[in-house]
Design a protein around this nucleic acid. Structure first.
Lengths: 315, 315
DNA sequence: TTAATTGATGCCATATTGGCATTAATGAAT
DNA sequence: ATTCATTAATGCCAATATGGCATCAATTAA
């Protein structure tokens, strides 16, 4: 290991916040980090970290070094990617992250097929419902619902993701079929709720083409769409759900779309996110495979919703 | 050894022109280079060099890689230098290059003293009369007569270097003492002669302040100033010599300045050259030590020429 | 007070590196 | 043509460096 690698190690230590965490993400022993950082300090002849036994802070020199280390990582990444552009056959490790549901339902089948076609490509899939740092963790691709804020990343919309209002037949028996959107105000609803996003109403476009929001009566809130769907299947709530979480519940008659004449506002689409302009071959091929799988026009999941083209379009 | 080091190795191979030369400058076995370059190609998955047994050429991928390797070297250098700025005590290896005469006569005494003061600093001195590439060979400092052309380098004038016209007493006995500069036209002269510079006349300023050049009759040409001086000591030629090669020949009466009333044009000064704005401590200290040794006003070597202040000033 | 976590250190098996000798290929000199 | 020298590649081996384990001391949380 040479100075560059040690600088990158230092950068990881600082980004992760401790030797132990850096060791964990690298799957190496803590002692290795400790030794290599010490070695780096010896080589450079500067103390980089002020250490106490349980934490550390950067020295002035250390702060300058991690800036440079970050530039080095960037440049080294570009270099490797440049080389990868010369591959005609994809190879290497394809690192992907996505939310649990996207990964399980839409990525996994593509990955299975992909690795049959390209056995030289290894795949690492990290399912995580909170955003991870693509750059520092070295991911090639991320799949997310909603456009990411980080403008240093490149996001491409790969599939629309319209909303539906759903309830189980049992719910309809209990509460009756709502005939206009205002009826939803008093019906029990399941709704998405997290630190970053809480759904408190249904946004739609009225007959005059004006945006409106119908308040809902949320009796169950969770930060997991599948849990909300499961709750709704039990017949005790209705739910405003994105189309991409629908499996065959509608086809089997276990869920029924409500108020399909309402024109709902489009929900955040599904995006693919990557950190660089020039993708390695393996990434580009996987990206294409995903688009192929999800469909060019209507996304794959909409085939689970018969007649969806005519629903929630305001007619 | 990791990818970065291998890229730097590749860069050296390309710069030096062969595996063998790169191995030589690194003082390692050729096999190491061969293995590491192969390893780099495997890791990147690209062929970088088209090899025949006795030479190689870069592939397109290889050409791109060495560009990046050069950026990496630059950035890594900056990083290390940044760390060195935090040293209060100088350490590390001070790599210096100069012409033979400058090194032997003016650097060596300073180096001896310097290493007494700072035993932590190692010194590598490369005496070479042709210019070497400071950047690719990793030199901290170069000392040269004449301003270097490479504008990416920083040059600082550290001492003027005036000229004299010298002859041995024996020469004067033989040919008589010249009384005006035109007398030199027919007297045998030793003159500097190399592929880059050939001296064919003596440039001076006449009584009206106009630049003139007096042709000389060169009977001995060499690309080494000491050899010219030695020839002159033999009494068979006079010579136009820069002051910095004078030892005690004038004090001992073995050489006599001629035509000291002529106003000679100033010769190229001695320059220190370094590749970066921010010098490591060891370099800055050595630089200061050299300036101290050579003298602020009149350079050290002028003390070997009694009355030199009043010579060749047009009086 | 105890328990848990952190980074440092010493020890050891293992992996990597660098040097040597050999080989094959190539181009220059005779 | 025929040496001859030089180049890069390869296999083998010793020296070196690395990473994992166990342990320790320091610190914080419970």
């Amino acid at each position: 290991m040479d100075t560059t690698s040690r600088l990158l190690m230092l950068l990881e230590v600082v980004e992760r916040g401790s030797f132990a965490k850096a060791a964990e993400t690298r799957n190496i022993d803590r002692s290795v980090i400790s030794k290599q950082i010490s070695r780096l300090e010896d080589d450079l002849g500067v103390r980089l970290l002020n250490r106490t036994t349980r934490s550390f802070s950067l020295t002035a020199a250390g702060a300058e070094m991690i800036k440079k280390a970050s530039e080095l990582r960037q440049l080294l990444g570009e270099t490797v990617r440049l080389a990868e552009n010369y591959h005609q056959e994809p190879r290497g490790v394809l690192k992907i992250t996505s939310s649990t549901i996207i990964g399980r339902r839409y990525l996994q089948p593509v990955i299975n097929d992909f690795q049959k076609r390209f056995p030289q490509v290894e795949v690492e899939l990290r399912l995580d419902d909170k955003l991870v740092d693509l750059v520092s963790e070295g991911f090639d691709l991320a799949f997310r619902v909603g456009e990411p804020k980080d403008s240093s990343l490149i996001a491409r919309k790969i599939a629309r993701n319209r909303l539906l209002i759903l309830a189980a037949p049992e719910f309809i028996q209990t509460y009756g079929l709502p005939s206009k959107i205002e009826d939803l105000a008093d019906l029990p609803s399941a709704s998405y709720f997290s630190t970053s996003l809480r759904v408190e109403g249904i946004r739609y476009v009225d007959q005059f083409g004006l945006p409106q929001e119908q308040k809902i009566k949320s009796v169950f809130r969770a930060n997991d769409a599948e849990v909300l769907l499961d709750k709704t299947l039990s017949g005790t709530t209705y739910v405003l759900a994105p189309a991409f979480i629908i499996n065959d519940e509608i086809k089997q008659g276990r869920l029924v779309p409500l108020l399909t004449d309402i024109k709902l506002q489009e929900y955040s689409a599904m995006y693919a996110v990557y950190p660089h302009r020039d993708l390695p071959v393996r990434t580009r091929l996987f990206f294409d495979a995903i688009r192929e799988h999800l469909g060019k026009e209507a996304p794959l999941w909409e085939s689970n919703i018969p007649g969806f083209d005519h629903m929630y379009q305001g007619g």
